[in-house]
Amino acid sequence: MNGILYGAGVGPGDPELMTLKAVRLIKENEIIALPGPAAKETVAYQIAVKAVPKLAEKTLLSVDMPMTHDKEEMHLNHEKAADAIEAYLKQGQNVVFLTLGDPTIYSTYLYVQKRILARGYEAELVSGITSFCAAAARTCTSLAEWDEQLHILPAVHKLNSDLSLPGNYVLMKSGKKMHQVKEILKSSGRKVVMVENCGMENEHIYRSAEEIPDDAGYYSLIIAKEPGGGHD
């Protein structure tokens, strides 16, 4: 029998926010895939090993999928990742692929899963706490109340947005475009909070668009709320 691929979310950064299921799968399986050129240097590993110290003794599979806008290079990297994982699956070994947050939200894991499923193997998704839910909890902020809408945007791809739809916004993946994102936030008139590296040792919280540094890190999550929003 072939092995099963598990895409397991490890949450946003705090190892105490990992699910019991993700912890169990790590303990029960030998092959653990991690997204990066060096498995033990990945953020996902550094989170998970604090919850499951025995992870350090597992067979770690480094799956390097560097971020690029070159679709041909991206496709090639995803194929290489699927090949590496398939080598274990066809031997009957399960592979647990650890990914930040939840594997269904802007996760590169999904591109690998599509290829594994297309090759006739079985795959399962294991939910993890999302970065925006963790950031909202960390700042005691509601994401949506009563009949409010919630819009989740990959900010780096939506720099033409004016955030004019009713409801609240979550802006992810601001990356190197933080300066432009800040200008959009200032123009929107919305109440802004950002958490950088939520749940990690170098966590920072910013309570306005003006406070956010232009060089904020990759793991930065912005919540932009309508003024006077919510329900009493």
Results as ranks from 00 to 15, higher is better:
4 I>M: 10
8 A>H: 09
8 A>W: 07
10 V>L: 07
10 V>A: 09
11 G>H: 01
12 P>M: 14
14 D>E: 12
15 P>N: 12
17 L>C: 07
21 K>I: 11
27 K>I: 15
31 I>V: 15
35 P>Y: 13
36 G>T: 07
45 Y>E: 09
47 I>W: 09
50 K>G: 05
50 K>Y: 08
55 L>C: 09
58 K>I: 09
62 S>Y: 03
64 D>I: 10
64 D>P: 00
81 A>M: 13
81 A>Y: 10
85 I>E: 01
87 A>H: 01
89 L>R: 00
93 Q>W: 05
93 Q>F: 11
98 L>N: 06
101 G>Q: 04
103 P>A: 10
108 T>M: 08
109 Y>P: 01
112 V>M: 05
118 A>H: 08
119 R>M: 01
120 G>M: 09
120 G>W: 07
122 E>K: 04
124 E>M: 14
124 E>A: 14
124 E>P: 00
125 L>A: 12
131 S>T: 09
136 A>D: 09
141 T>P: 07
141 T>Y: 09
142 S>W: 08
143 L>R: 07
143 L>G: 08
144 A>Q: 02
149 Q>L: 13
154 P>K: 05
154 P>H: 03
154 P>S: 12
156 V>W: 06
158 K>H: 15
162 D>S: 13
165 L>Q: 15
170 V>G: 01
175 G>H: 10
178 M>Y: 00
180 Q>P: 00
180 Q>Y: 01
181 V>K: 02
184 I>M: 15
185 L>S: 05
187 S>T: 13
189 G>N: 06
191 K>A: 11
192 V>A: 03
196 E>C: 11
200 M>W: 04
207 R>M: 06
210 E>A: 13
211 E>V: 01
213 P>Y: 07
216 A>R: 02
216 A>D: 08
218 Y>D: 04
222 I>H: 02
225 K>F: 00
229 G>D: 12
